[in-house]
């Protein structure tokens, strides 16, 4: 098995926490992993992405070829569209619908959502609202990860284990909130796919 994922968002939105959680889950299953991140200047409020590759065989390139990604997982709606040339035919576009507007010419949100709905396989959810329903808007990124978990060849329990490992040092409460977030995202996809 091999799963190639493009994680997308804006600098500071927490895509590296998603990446780290997936990484821990993959290691838990003894899978090979490569994950290319963006550091430095682009982190300052710019468009950021991370190429994440998981496989039971050794992985060659750190970068995913065009048309090769199984999943685009985006924490921001416009950013989900930026990487479409990388999405495989039949791949899933999983995105948050809450926009992050820090540019003057940000397009109409309705138009973005219409563009997302053109994708044959898409899951679009308002992760910020779902996360604030149980009192932690900051875990909207983990809601998004939860929404994408059905499309991985990794068990949900392994993702829960990944959450425990990654957030463990921050205390029991943070772990529980993020486990809740993961489950809420998963539930959304199971009801709406």
């Amino acid at each position: 098995m091999k799963t190639d994922i493009i994680l997308a968002g804006v600098g500071g939105q927490g895509i590296l926490s998603i990446a780290a959680t997936i990484g821990m889950s993959a290691l838990h299953n003894n899978l090979h992993l490569k994950q290319a991140e963006v550091h430095g200047m682009s982190q300052r409020g710019g468009a950021v992405q991370s190429n994440m590759r998981i496989s039971d065989k050794p992985i060659a390139s750190d970068l995913i070829p065009m048309g090769g990604a199984d999943i685009i997982l985006s924490v921001e709606p416009m950013e989900s569209l930026r990487y479409l040339p990388f999405l495989k035919k039949g791949g899933w576009l999983v995105t948050n619908t809450t926009p992050f507007i820090n540019i003057n010419n940000y397009p109409e949100v309705e138009e973005i959502l219409a563009e997302i709905k053109k994708q044959e396989k898409h899951i679009a959810l308002d992760a910020d609202t779902i996360a604030s329903e149980f009192g932690s808007k900051r875990s909207s990124n983990i809601v998004m990860l939860g929404a994408a978990t059905p499309f991985f060849d990794i068990s949900f329990e392994s993702f829960e284990e990944g959450i425990r490992q990654f957030f463990g040092r921050k205390g029991e409460d943070i772990v529980n909130v993020n486990l809740q977030a993961l489950r809420a995202g998963r539930d959304f996809t199971e009801k709406n796919r």
């Binding site: 300052r44 090769g68 479409l84 035919k89």
Partner: peptide, 20 residues
């Protein structure tokens, strides 16, 4: 051969880095 199916929709705007 490389796969060049998808394209970036025109409405997607650049988001350059900026000061916080």
């Amino acid at each position: 051969e490389t796969i060049l199916d998808g394209s970036i929709p025109e409405l997607v705007k650049n988001r350059p880095p900026s000061m916080c």
